[in-house]
Design a protein around this nucleic acid. Structure first.
Lengths: 144, 144
DNA sequence: ATGTGCGTTATTATAAAGTTACGTGATAAT
DNA sequence: ATTATCACGTAACTTTATAATAACGCACAT
């Protein structure tokens, strides 16, 4: 199931010479198992099952690490966090389609949109560092 | 200066038959004067100068009203709120270019991007209700 | 004019999300 | 071995937002 995902992450960490500690790996596993966006405190509660001493900074540190490495995204409009299936491609711009009913999130990409955004930015000599593209609405199943 | 903005808002409220109360108007004035994104508590502090009894719910109620009417946007990635200069066009998708250094926000639009986003959404039969497009980086002045 | 309905405002309390500060032990680099 | 850095533990706190309920006040129907 998600073993291959974790294995790839582990390999990548070795290549980057950074430490995927047990704690960080546990948080990743929790997120993989959940397979949906979760808040920091949701994650903290689950982390506590394995590491009862965990406190808010514990989870925020792990999230910071995972965000830096591009393994997860922060979902700004719901203050939550979600696995990024495209961590191999660090420069990608992700577009999140978020169903407001069932809470499912689909990550998509579009080079057309990337090009258009960059064009729009360059018109104002704006240098893009990070993009937050979150589209709220209803998924196919939740429309009927 | 920003009188014309307020006048237009007032006219619009009359047309919609909704009440731009003194409190709500004061909040709008504060936002217009500031001319940048502000957090709810920034706004609350300034509102208190005129209305010392104001409490968190006071500002959140005003913000809720202004958001519903499309007079302001919530900036999700900084938990703040900003005037929307395009309140006349309720269906527009706004793209916010946010300078992480000087905090200035430029709102832009692109029908190309709108079309592309809708196309991408329809590929998954996703029905878009609301868009959060926030691009972080450096503005022209802050790059040098 | 008067009550009644409903939107607005007031007040208290609490929840949710995130940070700061400081210490300790492990690791690794020289 | 020594020192610098990183990861983690812990307590306290700040910031952001919502819940629950009461009181006010105007619109308008009788």
């Amino acid at each position: 199931m998600h073993n291959s995902f974790l294995e790839k992450i582990e390999t990548l960490c070795k290549m980057r010479n950074i430490k995927l500690t047990t704690q960080r790996k546990t948080v990743l596993e929790i997120m993989l198992t959940a397979n949906r966006a979760m808040t920091a405190y949701d994650l903290l509660d689950l982390l506590k099952l394995k590491e009862p001493q965990a406190k808010p900074p514990t989870i925020y540190r792990a999230l910071e690490f995972l965000l830096e490495q591009g393994f997860i995204h922060k979902v700004e409009s719901s203050n939550s966090y979600i696995i990024c299936p495209h961590f191999q491609d660090p420069e990608h711009i992700s577009i999140l389609f978020m169903c407001d009913k069932c809470k499912k999130i689909i990550e998509k990409h579009s080079s057309d949109i990337e090009v258009n955004l960059k064009k729009l930015a360059s018109q104002s000599d704006f240098l893009i560092k990070h993009s937050v593209l979150e589209l709220h609405g209803l998924c196919k199943l939740c429309q009927s």
